[in-house]
Design a protein around this nucleic acid. Structure first.
Lengths: 208, 208
DNA sequence: TTTTATTTATGACAAATGTCATATAAACTT
DNA sequence: AAGTTTATATGACATTTGTCATAAATAAAA
């Protein structure tokens, strides 16, 4: 298995080389110190896996992957990171990275490389822990209007306002008079401590 | 490394056992054929990793993990699956599964186990490919206001309206007169074919 | 039955909103 | 320089909105 190491900290890069070469299956065919170098070197060396830092001076790891993947669609990149940055995880994933692990965690680098070599995608546990929360949001939570002291009628009006209806239209839809709808809205606004229907709609779409 | 295998197809279970035991580091301490069995057996055997099928008759893999993790918070479970089901991935992740790989992919099972043993989380590439899309939504896409014939100033006003500001407040924030802001909004509404600021805010939160 | 809440409704009012015609100055074209 | 566009402003106006006091009808509680 031929791998290439990319890290702008030369000490880290050579440490990684040593750690990784201790395994007889792994051969380090190249070491680079910037994303830009890596893009160039990848063409010549075409390694099986790229073991790359994310934060680097001259073109960071994500940009490098983006470039590389344009030329070599099947490129496999395992990212190393010192700290966990949610932004990066998502970006890395959508770019097609094969993994995202913590640099400090030496022992896990070789197994991770092997798993990637076998077609897996690997994440440090700390990294993955935050994923479920990021995924969770599509599960639409039901708005608990009662906890705001609102009743079903009031909530129904909120929904109509959030659909953009005027007082008159709400009244027609609910078979109430326009004045009554106004009164309801007045009450809703004060309970929710909002100023006007626009803020109510905003509340609906951001907090509900 | 002690592992436990759980699969209701006995043939598959024993095949897995053979494959996995071919590696001298791995020792299979138990084989179960249902989630319920697994929960019980886990207590007695406390393996390092549980290699478990998801679809099973008597208590499925996810339910089993849920039970097990109640008792053993640090339990590590690597799921095996015949087909890719997005539902399961998300659920498995939020339950704290350490991996999710394709059963057919024999060669990758051992490396995956080792990576998990080292604290990583592992996904079959096919599995992970669908994650980026699921994650993408938090990545706020930039609204292309130009395609609606709006200029930057108008868009800025839209943002303020969508924050719930009144005309007067918008005016103050943009150093314009209130009347001008009104005129702008009037123009915005007609371009967007909306009726009032509330509908504009709704547009912002649902279409932008 | 009387009292009390609840729901719905009115009317009056001030403030905010949206539309429109028009105006002014600055920034460009030509 | 003369003309045109652009950004900003004004005033007048009709509507809509939100608040409040109050009232009638009904339902629930005593």
């Amino acid at each position: 298995m031929k791998i290439m190491i990319v890290d702008d900290d030369k000490l880290v890069a050579s440490s990684l080389k040593m750690i990784v070469e201790a395994d007889e299956e792994i051969e380090v065919t190249g070491v680079c110190h910037s994303g830009r170098e890596a893009v160039k070197a990848y063409d010549e060396l075409s390694p099986d896996i790229l073991l790359m830092d994310i934060r680097m001076e001259d073109m960071n790891g994500l940009e490098a992957l983006e470039e590389i993947i344009k030329m070599h669609e099947d490129a496999r990149v395992l990212f190393l990171t010192t700290f966990n940055d949610d932004e990066y995880i998502v970006k890395a994933l959508s770019l097609g990275a094969k993994g995202y692990i913590i640099k400090q965690d030496y022992e896990s680098i070789v197994p991770a490389l092997k798993a990637v070599y076998e077609g897996q995608t690997v994440f440090g546990s700390d990294v993955i822990e935050r994923l479920p929360d990021m995924l969770k949001e599509p599960a639409k939570k039901e708005f608990d209007y009662e906890s705001f002291g609102l009743n079903a009628q009031e909530y129904e009006i909120i929904e109509l306002v959030a659909m953009g209806l005027s007082n008159k239209e709400c009244a027609a839809k609910l078979a109430l008079s326009e004045g009554t709808v106004r009164n309801y809205i007045s009450g809703i606004l004060s309970k929710l401590e909002l100023r006007d229907r626009t803020n109510l709609a905003i509340f609906y779409y951001t907090r509900c």
